[in-house]
Amino acid sequence: MSAAAHGETRAVRIGKMLLRAALLGLFAFFIFGPLLNLLLWAFAERWYFPNKLPSQYGFTFWERVFNPRGNAMASLVTSVGIAVTTVIVCLAIAVPAGLALGRLQLRWRAAIMLVFLLPSAFPNLPVYVNIARVFYELKLAGTVPGVVLVHAAHGLVLAVWISAAAFASVDKALEEAARNLGAGAWRCFLTVTLPLAAPGIIAGGIFVFLESLDEFTGTFFVGVPDVQTLPLLMFNASMGGNYQIASITALLLLVPSVGFMLLVERFLKPNVMATLGR
């Protein structure tokens, strides 16, 4: 290879490297810039124009949020309580349905799947408005059970899908082996099928938990004014111009989400994800 050609490739290589670095920088700013801004607001004590950055940092607003008698802590408790109840209700209903749809040779399975698939396309807002009207008559509006029911209906579609996929991915031969060794249908389900499908079902439960924790529109229409979850608290703080409280609440919401996301990576195996929606 001649020296000139070698020099040219080196120049090209450096140019490529610079381009790649610039793209990476842009990409990093795109992903992290907004989050950095959020962090600034969470710790800003004073921030007036024309200061580029907050003129004073501190924890005053954190103290206000974490005050045990403050409404932020009460919202957190309400949010987590609603989310846990929603997961229990949802899984109790979704696991049997998932077993039937993922495992049994059902007649009209396609039609049933369509019933379960369509709601994922429904716009939530008009649905919530109608539910709010019905709940108002049933005296469920503004109550925790009302909000749980709305969240459960919302999370159910995904929970059924994921548990159907999880049951479908369990190897039938293992069940047959258990039956051949004399296990009854119920015992076979409890000791073979369910444990093998458990990672997928747990992942589904985690998704439902997160959806419930983050849900805003449904809670807004059904829960107001008596049920205040964290997203509602954040919305009110932000609309009231209280950026610090809003930022801290957003950070609070981020903690369980990221934690559970890490768990999902463990539980949700690629072969389950790949059968989703099939």
């Binding site: 049994l104 040779q105 059902l106 019933v115 369509l118 159910l156």
Partner: peptide, 27 residues
Amino acid sequence: ANVHGWLLVLPAAALLVLFTHYPTVAT
């Protein structure tokens, strides 16, 4: 077996019909 299956699906279907399909028809 089919009846078993449908019974398993029934609660989920009922909740969805009540909370998403019915409000949509009402709209």
